[in-house]
Amino acid sequence: MTRRHPRSFRGLHALIEHPPGRDRTVLKNQLEFLGLKVTVHDQASPAPSEPVDILFFDADGGQTGEQEDAHHEIDLPAVALIGSETPSRLQAMLARRPSAYLMKPIRSTGIYASLAIATHQFATVEAMRRKLASADERLRSRRLLFSATLQIMKQAQVDETEAFRILRRTAMSRRETIEAVSAGVVAGNLPLPRLLAG
């Protein structure tokens, strides 16, 4: 398959969750014109089996007050299709974490921009989430690292710099992270003689 132009959305699979009508037709036609594969989904039809790259969902219909909180997060780029600007609807729409939106009536103009914004925004947020998760992980392991350092300082009667050096050397020789080695030390899986043996 030829490589697509980076600003082309050709070949992506779009799912439209919206009742039939002019808005859905305009959106579907324009997405197909832009080279996307489009599946439309309403309450009557089953969810598609193929993986979806971008979702367009109706912000006006669907669920209501009582089930609103039960709405699960969307883990793909999503574009909200907004008709009513009432806060109750906007709140339900935001709970689905859209990356972009289009105002109804849907026109061909704006759909391409919504694809660009949604995919970019989703990628940015995803990257931030990954970074946050790894920072969280490192923050949690700081305590392990600190405990392991203290333990080695006490057992080997060395200073902090030397204790850290032992940890690092062990991590390098075992091809593990310092955090993993620290966890082993704290759990008692790596007694001092093995550490000093390197």
Binding site: D60, G65, T86, P87, S88, R89
Partner: peptide
């Protein structure tokens, strides 16, 4: 009734 008027007035 389960529609916009109810959702918004209830809110």
């Amino acid at each position: 009734a389960n529609y916009l008027w109810t959702w918004e007035t209830n809110r």
